[in-house]
Write a protein that binds this DNA or RNA. Structure first.
Lengths: 204, 204
DNA sequence: TGTCATCTTTGACAGGCTTGCATACATTGA
DNA sequence: TCAATGTATGCAAGCCTGTCAAAGATGACA
């Protein structure tokens, strides 16, 4: 061994993530990443090979963090509130920053310059994880009893809906509208909580 | 007047539309459009000004046609079948070609290089039209009686869902899966047709 | 029929950005 | 001390946009 890395790799990957997130994979050049991280372009090529490899590296970290935070957002014991929290998390994530940064997964999925199979596999990985997470959360007795359709189907509908919300954000740029749309879907998907449910006795 | 346009404008706009559709706004260069249409780049600049203006011209025609065809797809008298036909239309549209061309509206919405206000307004125009179309279709007595949520909310959920389906297509490339997801949403949104409904008197 | 203004076409140019490689220099562990 | 790695810098080849000047085509009008 010799010649240790001189730049702070964690910082560099984070700024690379931010640039990819804001500008999208295809519109981001290695020079953009170099400028943002303060690392010379040559060093990035040396350390990661090329843009696709660097992106995959960045996206792996991003996906882990996103899935972990999403899981946390689903923790509320009441399924409709859990879903509201879940949408709230994704909407807040995508409407952060000015201009809003949108969703890294969706931007990459739509980007025609990110059409490699390895990138698509990475995106599938996160979406599959999210779907499993949702299906699990929707498989409790309380949730099953209130859902209009089976948990697996509902999970897929919800994941698809998050993707749609991302697109609507780009066009309408109105977070409140997005939350309202999500609420409408939840209303259609989850029947109202019956009094006396959830183990706690209530006084009407 | 003098010096008439020498290229077939209709053909040129159609090939421009196809290139934009396949590659996306940002990844399409004027040279790409020139090559596809057989018109020299200089002539395109002369005729349309720049890429954004040409795109807006192309998209106006596209939006008209898309909305008209979507309206046709909603014609079935039974609301759940009308919605299935509607999704079928959008899914077929986006999965045409090899590689599949996806959705021009969504690609443009997500494209960071298409961030002009005029382009966003054009996208909003089509999405608003589609939403109105759906809301109208969902406002019949039969539809109202079967919908889990009000027509306006359902329309917005459905439009958002079509956007999400576009994204899922890019990642999973499985039209059957998309149709199944759409069916799940319709199941949650529209209650089963009661026997004897649709104008025929019923005995309770 | 001929002229002419006007628009279109055509080819070329400048200036900028992109990728990926290659070379020289610096640093560090063995 | 030396070999391996990271850094610094430059280069080649290509693509991009937008513009411009010269040449061609066309309709209107005399």
């Amino acid at each position: 061994m010799a010649g240790q890395r001189q730049f702070d790799e964690r910082r560099a990957l984070e700024s690379a993530r931010d640039v990819f997130w804001l500008k999208g994979y295809g519109a981001t050049s290695m020079q953009d990443l170099a400028t943002a991280s303060g690392v010379l372009r040559g060093s990035l090529y040396n350390a990661y090979g090329d843009k696709e490899a660097l992106f995959l590296r960045v996206y792996a970290d991003y996906a882990d963090q996103f899935a972990a935070e999403a899981a946390g957002a689903l923790a509320h014991p009441s399924v409709d509130q859990a879903l509201r929290d879940f949408f709230d998390f994704t909407i807040t994530s995508m409407t952060t920053g000015a201009p809003t940064r949108g969703c890294l997964t969706t931007k990459t999925a739509i980007d025609t310059k990110a059409d490699g199979e390895r990138i698509r596999a990475a995106l599938r990985g996160l979406l599959d994880d999210m779907e499993r997470l949702l299906e699990q959360r929707l498989s409790t007795d309380e949730a099953r009893s209130r859902l209009a359709i089976p948990p697996a189907e509902a999970a897929r509908v919800l994941i698809t809906m998050t993707r749609g919300i991302v697109v609507m954000e780009r066009v309408y740029q109105d977070a409140q509208r997005l939350r309202a749309t999500a609420d409408s879907l939840i209303d259609a998907l989850v029947s109202p909580e019956r009094q006396g449910d959830e183990g706690l006795p209530t006084t009407p």
